[in-house]
Design a binder for these strands. Structure first.
Length: 278
DNA sequence: ACACGATCCTGACTGC
DNA sequence: TGCAGTCAGGATCGTG
């Protein structure tokens, strides 16, 4: 569910509370999501530790302690809910982190994930770039657009994939999922069906800039709430009102008034304007 | 090596 | 009302 902006907003929302806080207890209500949960590692290395920094890499949230790093990916439907007191669990609550903040208040962070596509991991030591979740990840789209554009151009030369599928591959570029891929391609006026190798250097530079500005605007708006994404304390994101094509099939294009079209690519919905995007 | 579809899972919504 | 079918902010795996 969450793409880069939603994870960035989650990290930003939790950071003031969790940085400097102690993890007092971790309770698991099942032993697996997509894969086994790191129950033993969390019990041995995370419980009792102080969280020093919260960070993000791609769509992963990272919790760093003195010696180690915990990793979290929310999949399609995962979320963290912050509760002030212990209370009955909502359905699909799989893990509860009990936390004591720096001002000695107790909080409960509930990991809820109906579809269970999320994942959690643990890395001994600080070099989390070597963790199996992270090691194959590509560039961060908020880095320099010059650098990202150049890299995407070069890695697309012998690639016969449509550009939208190409963008969503996290081994090249992280954080761009189904919503923001459609949005950035619209803003760059590039058809999602274009063969990646048919785009030139300047197309990739323009596209990289549009990806970055779209993601930044979404972060500023608190993310996109379509179905169930909310901040840890329940507020919705606001970027859905700024979406130009995603979810707007049959509505007029904001640029040319021609109706927005949808199609399927790689099993996912794509939204685009046949007139504006070439 | 690459490109594609199937797959993991539950819930919400559609149409018959 | 019920039931089948489809779709959903992701990413990995197996196959051709």
């Amino acid at each position: 569910m969450p793409e880069l902006p939603e994870v960035e907003c989650l990290v930003n929302a939790l950071r003031p509370l969790l940085e400097g806080a102690q993890i007092t207890k971790i309770k698991f209500y099942r032993n697996d999501l997509r894969e086994p949960l790191p129950i033993k590692e969390f019990a041995k290395y995370l419980e009792g530790q102080t969280l020093l920094t919260l960070d993000r890499r791609g769509k992963y949230m990272l919790w760093e302690t003195k010696n180690d790093v915990a990793l979290f990916h929310l999949g399609m439907s995962g979320r963290f809910n912050l509760e002030q007191k212990s209370q009955p669990l909502k359905t699909h609550t799989h893990v509860v982190f009990s936390v004591k903040s720096q001002d000695q208040k107790n909080y409960y962070l509930h990991y809820v994930d109906p579809r269970r596509f999320g994942r959690m991991g643990f890395h001994l030591g600080h070099d989390v770039s070597r963790h199996k979740f992270i090691e194959k990840l590509g560039l961060e789209p908020l880095e320099s657009s010059q650098k990202v554009g150049k890299y995407l151009f070069e890695s697309s030369r012998r690639c016969r994939q449509p550009i939208k599928t190409f963008l969503m591959n996290s081994h090249r570029l992280v954080g761009v999922g189904n919503i923001y891929a459609s949005e950035a391609l619209f803003r760059a006026k590039i058809s999602p069906f274009r063969d990646s190798s048919s785009l030139d250097n300047s197309d990739f530079l323009r596209l990289s800039r549009e990806i970055k500005t779209t993601l930044q605007a979404a972060i500023k708006a608190g993310g996109t709430t379509l179905r169930d994404y909310v901040h840890p304390e329940g507020q919705q994101g606001q970027f859905q009102i700024s979406l130009k094509v995603y979810g707007r099939e049959g509505k007029p294009c904001v640029e040319c008034q021609k109706l927005v079209t949808s199609a399927r690519q790689g099993g996912r919905s794509t939204f685009y304007c046949q007139q504006c995007q070439n």
